[in-house]
Amino acid sequence: MNTMLIKIVDHVDLQEAYQYLQDPSAGGIDLFVGTVRNYAQGKDVVKLVFEAYAPMALKEMEKLAQAAQQQWPITKLVMLHAVGEKLIGEPVVIIGVASAHRDAAFTACRFLIDELKKTVPIWKKEYYQDNSVWVNAHP
């Protein structure tokens, strides 16, 4: 059975993620949605632009998904990340985990988003009123 949905897309779709995660054996579905915040580095953010090294990003996300499946009893999981220009409030990443019980769903969901931020080759540039910065690029 296909148990993971991992994609780099122009727009993440919460409905698609939820539909995919539904399963008769799942007693809990945990969804995390990361969105564009209006404030960073002490400045108003106008927009974000995301880019990915897609083939490697997908591979790295699959590794994380497999690591999660080995640690927790996961029925299905979803990792969707958007690329391109995103405005304030827009969703950019969706992590979803379906499991028999909520503990595993919560814990695995947290693991997947935390690790995604560390290893998956996706970059965001923050645009303010007067300049723009690649996030995390410099100490």
Partner: peptide
Amino acid sequence: IALIPPVSGG
């Protein structure tokens, strides 16, 4: 070969 500067997805 690809250069991977500090990532900042999510």
